[in-house]
Design a protein around this nucleic acid. Structure first.
Lengths: 167, 167
DNA sequence: TCCATCTAGTTCAACTTTCAAGGAAAGGTC
DNA sequence: GACCTTTCCTTGAAAGTTGAACTAGATGGA
């Protein structure tokens, strides 16, 4: 299976296949590693940690549910469950949105902030260890560009950008 | 928060943070996209598809459970559940290993092979669309190298490779 | 105002993943 | 052979995710 079109299907070249496998391999290992690290050191999966980070950066450490879901790239359903769990831990609480009675704000509690502050150094160290400590500055720059290009092609806006009927 | 060590913790530089966010963003969007694509077109999540692919490439389209779990980078427990589901679909069956009575082979059925053959073109097209169609040949090569380096650092063997007491 | 429609968020059921526990066979070692 | 340890795989319960259905409130006309 090499580079040329076979019938209707344009298969991947050998190099592309190899890159794709390396990609899957590396991303799987990394996600597993970080998930376990955070579960052990912070008592939550990576995605939940990301939610706390989002809230910690938001003005007044709170954010509308929909905005939080959008920024964390998860569904609103998943976020509802996640916030319910984080609320049970006392790390987040819900608050009615004053301007829209349908709305809820997720608010990072002081306790949540402390958990974040305590676990951040270990997490950063893990990220550095699995990724940045192994790459040259040139590779880091290149990886950044590559990921931006890929993400750009998958953005809600961007996804439509090259549909012909949108010009 | 810039580049210098703060107290004990060596935080990420601004560039590293930016790259890390792009990385998380892009990989999340890609995985979601491909998961949905496969769920829709093949009736299974990406990881299950990967199991069928592994089996299709194995001699006699069968593989020991442990080997399959290792190659697919998942736990044996997860694999047991997954194979149970695929077995219910008729795409895989289990078979006792003749040489080791503890062992099981997962065997790709003809029906499983057909599902794979039918869904592969769409999946390849999706992979090409989200990744390869957006990258220059140079970027593809670079991404491959980067992912190999990262994976190398996380391999079961490799993970121990730089622990000081192992020399 | 009335109504259709849209948006925010939750909930339910089905499914997947994880973790800890366990049974059964294989591989030493004495 | 008896015993201990390891390996192979499964199981069950708890946790997490998904997609569809649903409620309540907002929005924009006619």
């Amino acid at each position: 299976m090499t580079t040329a079109p076979t019938g209707e299907t344009r298969w991947l070249t050998d190099e592309e296949q190899s890159v794709w496998r390396s990609y899957l391999h590396a991303t799987t290992l990394m996600e597993d590693h970080l998930d376990r690290q955070l579960q052990r050191d912070a008592g939550m999966p990576h995605i939940y940690y990301g939610l706390l980070v989002q809230l910690s950066r938001a003005p007044r450490r709170r954010k509308r549910m929909t905005a939080l879901a959008r920024d964390a790239k998860i569904t609103r359903s998943r976020l509802s469950h996640a916030v319910a769990r984080l609320e049970k831990n006392g790390w987040v609480r819900r608050e009615d949105c004053p301007s829209d009675k349908r709305g809820q704000n997720a608010v990072l509690t002081d306790e949540g902030f402390d958990v974040l502050a305590r676990s951040a150094p270990g997490h950063v160290a893990a990220v550095r260890q699995v990724m940045f400590s192994r790459l040259t500055p040139e590779q880091v720059r290149s990886l950044g560009e590559i990921m931006q290009v890929i993400a750009g092609g998958l953005q809600p806006e961007g996804a439509d950008a090259d549909l012909p009927w949108l010009r």
